[in-house]
């Protein structure tokens, strides 16, 4: 469970101070799907970075399961990311030199799992996204949708508690977008994930339990259907 209390993230650009996130107090329960919308530059990705422990709040507290991410030393924060948080990016961020299976395996490296165990988990993850037969393919040999499936498998292979998706369908066509969202929704339901998804797409956002809109660093919850 995420508990954000008066979280703010400020950036200094010369003499100017930009508040990417301001006075954000929010609770995200385990297993919830929160969609975050908003215009470009209004703090969506910053919020995701804060939730993922990739950045620290300037003020306020941000807790994941009672642990303040902002106060954790870098090593511990890295461990939290490795064990509990899966990331899905708009541009997939697959390592171009590694095959689909190796890209997925990369997420297991920090967990010190044995090679055979890693192999089993990678195969299962790729199977769960329908790419068992593409394990040896390089990213350049896969379509955009397939690359995003690999990225989803990479996010899920470590059985994370939270998946943070930043515009996961932003680079995909409509049909592929629907496939990916359907897959994410299926995995969310199936695995009881906490899914926080940043999107410009209202049709996608509406499928979430909660929809928040970021505007000048402020988050406003517009849809709250926790029982969906």
């Amino acid at each position: 469970m995420y508990q954000l209390t008066s979280v703010a993230k400020l950036y200094h650009k010369g003499r100017r101070t930009v508040a990417a996130v301001q006075d954000l107090t929010l609770t995200i329960d385990d297993g919830q799907w929160l969609a975050v919308q908003g215009r470009t530059g209004h703090g969506k990705s910053t919020l995701l970075n804060l939730l993922g422990g990739l950045d620290r709040p300037t003020s306020g507290t941000l807790e994941l399961d009672g642990t303040s991410l902002g106060a954790l030393p870098q090593t511990r924060l890295t461990q939290v990311r490795a064990a509990k948080i899966g990331f899905i990016f708009q541009t997939f961020n697959l390592i171009p030199t590694l095959s689909a299976a190796e890209n997925v395996e990369a997420a297991l490296i920090p967990l010190s799992a044995g090679q055979s165990r890693r192999g089993e988990r990678v195969a299962a993850a790729l199977d769960s996204v329908g790419l068992a037969d593409r394990a040896g393919h390089l990213p350049t040999e896969l379509s955009g949708g397939q690359q995003q499936r690999v990225a989803i498998a990479r996010a899920l292979v470590k059985d994370p508690k939270v998946v943070l998706a930043d515009e996961p369908t932003g680079n995909l066509d409509t049909d592929t977008r629907d496939d990916i969202i359907a897959l994410l929704e299926h995995l969310w339901r199936d695995r009881g994930l906490t899914l926080i998804l940043v999107t410009h797409d209202t049709t996608i956002a509406r499928r979430a339990q909660r929809v928040g809109v970021m505007n000048n660093g402020h988050l406003t919850i517009r849809q709250d259907s926790p029982n969906r």
Binding site: L54, T78, A82, A83, I95, A106, A107, I109, P110
Partner: peptide, 11 residues
């Protein structure tokens, strides 16, 4: 990306 995946800097 590797850091986001939980890779330590030294790794």
């Amino acid at each position: 990306t590797l850091k986001a995946l939980g890779w330590r800097t030294r790794r």
